[in-house]
């Protein structure tokens, strides 16, 4: 490919050197040829440039800001590691990281589990499967703001479940997770799982439909029970789906922002702060752009720590084929 390109270039420059009246006529097709050869690159170039500037450029810019004296607006005055010290000295940041751990673990784990169970149950050739599938998938069509607001009302002791039970006559019933600083984070998990498990279900369902029926028949002939077939054959075969849902849910968890804002507002008393809400608050309401940038860098590194090993393990086997 490269060799043919340079040959064409050589031809063109010969034509130019000739500078005969026929030269102009000869050059025209070669110009189109050149454009044609470069066309893929030309088409991709704007996207490439935009990505370079607006993704990687701004990552570099944010990283730089996290070492500066930026307060209300970005400043270029170098301050070394001081913003990072401020970040790690802030107890709310530690709360936010701890919350992210709890939230991500439960959110990813429960969504996957729920999604898989729903998919397996839906896969049993039941009636009205299409309608049920749609019902389970619908929460995904809502924005997290809607989910958060709805669950805020449902979980609010004075409006939702607790009041309902009181109205039914169970006066001792208590469900106050939303206003309890120790339990409020689990409210986020409930709303998040409700939102996402339908989506995970769809992925698992697709994978289940893709499994060769012959394998299952063979297992049945060998005398394996249904439970055993799922545990030993089908679920292990869905390893790629586990990985994709882990990646998708993982990045949703790390960048969770709107759900917190709508459901708890970070409260009670910062008990449900997450890194993303912390970053927004520092950058936009507390005039500490440098600390906000530092927290953004830590978040980026967290995402990298999760994604890079995955990409590495996923892309390595294909490496030989694609060059």
């Amino acid at each position: 490919m490269k060799a043919s390109l340079s040959m064409k270039r050589a031809e063109t420059s010969d034509g130019e050197r000739g500078a005969t009246p026929t030269g102009a006529r000869a050059r025209r097709p070669s110009l189109i040829d050149r454009i044609g050869d470069q066309l893929p690159k030309i088409v991709v170039a704007p996207t490439f440039l935009i990505t370079l500037v607006f993704v990687y450029g701004f990552i570099a810019w944010t990283t730089y800001l996290s070492f500066t004296r930026s307060t209300m607006r970005p400043s270029m005055v170098w301050e070394g590691l001081r913003p990072h010290e401020r970040l790690w000295g802030n107890p709310v940041w530690h709360t936010a990281l701890g919350n992210l751990g709890t939230y991500a673990l439960l959110y990813i784990g429960l969504s996957t589990l729920m999604g898989m169970l729903l998919a397996i149950l839906l896969d049993q050739r039941i009636r009205a499967e299409g309608a049920l599938r749609t019902i389970y998938l619908y929460p995904m069509a809502l924005s997290f703001i809607v989910t958060g607001t709805a669950w805020k009302w449902i979980l609010n002791p004075g409006l939702g479940i607790e009041k309902l039970m009181h109205d039914f006559g169970f006066q001792d019933f208590q469900f106050q997770w939303l206003v309890d600083p120790d339990m409020a984070i689990y409210c986020l998990v409930i709303a998040g799982v409700w939102q996402s498990s339908g989506f995970v279900m769809a992925m698992f369902l697709a994978a289940l439909r893709g499994i060769d029926g012959e394998i299952i028949k063979a297992a049945q002939i060998d005398g394996a029970g249904l439970l055993r077939i799922y545990a030993r054959i089908i679920i292990p075969m869905m390893r790629p789906v586990f990985l994709s849902s882990f990646i998708i849910l993982g990045h949703l968890a790390i960048k969770s922002f709107d759900l917190v804002v709508a459901l708890t507002g970070g409260g009670p008393g910062n008990a449900t702060a997450l890194p993303a809400t912390f970053m927004y608050e520092m950058t936009f309401t507390r005039n500490q752009v440098a600390v906000g940038a530092a927290s953004a860098v830590v978040m980026l590194m967290t995402v990298c720590a999760v994604i890079v090993p995955y990409l590495y393990s996923e892309l390595r086997p294909k490496g030989g084929a694609h060059g």
Binding site: T71, M72, N90, P91, V92, P181, G267, P268, G269, N270, A271, E281, M282, T285, R286, N287, Q288
Partner: peptide
């Protein structure tokens, strides 16, 4: 006090009130 200080005080006060 400036916003940064106000935010720091708010963290402590709201943390105290809710724990």
């Amino acid at each position: 006090a400036p916003e940064a200080v106000k935010g720091a005080v708010a963290d402590v006060v709201t943390g105290f009130f809710n724990s």
